[in-house]
Computed example of a mutant assay.
Amino acid sequence: MRSTRAMSGAGGAVKRAGAGRGRRWRRALLATLALGAVAAPAISSGCVAGFDPPSLVDGLRVFAVVADRPYANPGEQVTFQIHYQDGLGGAEGGTRPVNVYWFGGCENPVGDDYYGCYPQFAELAAQLDGWEPGDPLPELDGVPPGFGDTYTVTIGDDILVGRQPPVSGPAYGSAYVFFVACTGTLGAVEDQGTGRAGTFPVGCFDADGRRLGPDSFVAGYTQVYVFGDGRVNANPEMQGLTLDGAPLPEDFADIPTVPPCPVGKEERREVGCSAEDPFVECPSYDLDALLDASVAEPDPDAQQQALKEIVWIDYFADLGDLDRGIKLVSDASKGYLGDHAVNWIPPAEPGIATLTAVLRDTRGGSSVVQRRVRVK
């Protein structure tokens, strides 16, 4: 099973389930979090906090890292593709260069925790002193790093050697791959953490040596599980997105045009029960994912009854607002739920809005679809 997570302070990714008893506990926690988010819209009528919702992409955001093999076997190659968007941009509305770096080579760390890889990573980070873009990157435990939107690693042949099975389920091993999305230059960071994990040893710096924040730097990891019984898991699939029931085209030349909303951003964030509800004052559109009802696979750990993996969608927009950012697609016991649409209202100013949907399951599978809408 695979999980993707951004490190503390980096933002933008989701932790998925682990293995054995802990894995089932995390699955239940994810279900609770998903249902809680479904019940709590990002913008409600009137009595809202004056801040941007998490579904608004207003900085560098990593949506997901999708593996072609959400479950792997010893000796197999796994290719990862990162999906991100820079909602901040550069001067005069331009785009900033975003560099993505990958570091593999950490398998079965102490405690099976990602921060068990930090001692190896700290040795790598120390070699970044004086490093410039275009220079070769140091290796993590002899495994070559990567650069770009995709990265391939080979799972060790001996990843299951000596691994004992938990109380229930097969023995498992795990391989960690770290990714760094940076709009500046990589550099080492001293450990200033006070918790168990400590500080991620790599940071992102601008041309003047200033450390960049989470709107310009996202660091995280993806965890690949290898099970002794050879189980597999497919990524949940989306066929596309619809706006008010009409499929949104992939071709930019064919994207639809909608009018702007008369309620400005500051008015939408006003605090107080007398504030306007922008979803009443503005024209709203149903944003939905095209899915098959069989999107959820059976849960191989279910013993007492037949259960499905939990599947949900995270929605994002870089312009306009969504009434909520997450919808449950398939429940463990109820199965497929037909209503997984959210409402989107356009911004007050003209522009090209990018709408993103990330379909995830609790066993590490994911898929991403992006479409655009012209506001004019």
Rank of each mutant, 00 (worst) to 15 (best):
F103N: 10
D191A: 01
Y84G: 03
V78F: 10
P97N: 09
F121M: 15
V161Y: 10
G184E: 05
E107A: 15
V189A: 01
V143G: 04
G213Q: 04
F179W: 13
G87L: 12
R163D: 02
D158A: 09
Q192C: 00
I82T: 08
G130I: 14
D157W: 08
F205P: 03
T194N: 01
P214Y: 13
D158L: 07
G89W: 06
G209Q: 07
R163C: 06
L160P: 07
R210N: 13
F200I: 04
V100S: 12
V202Q: 08
W102V: 14
V167K: 10
G105P: 14
N108M: 14
G169W: 05
P214F: 12
A181L: 11
T185C: 00
F200E: 00
D149G: 08
G116A: 14
V180Y: 02
G184Y: 02
L137Q: 08
C117M: 14
V100M: 10
E190K: 01
T185G: 00
D191H: 01
R211I: 11
Q81K: 14
G203T: 02
G94R: 14
F200K: 01
D113V: 15
L186E: 02
Y176E: 00
F80C: 06
V110L: 15
L160K: 09
P133Q: 06
G90E: 06
D112C: 12
Q81Y: 01
I82F: 08
D86C: 03
V100D: 12
P145E: 03
T152E: 04
Q120R: 15
R210L: 10
G89S: 05
Y172H: 11
I82K: 09
S174H: 06
I159F: 08
P119K: 15
Y172C: 01
R210H: 09
L88D: 00
I155V: 09
E107S: 15
A125I: 13
D86P: 06
V110K: 14
C117S: 10
V98D: 09
G90V: 02
G203H: 03
Y101L: 12
L124K: 11
C106W: 13
P138C: 09
G213C: 08
P145N: 06
L128D: 06
D135Y: 10
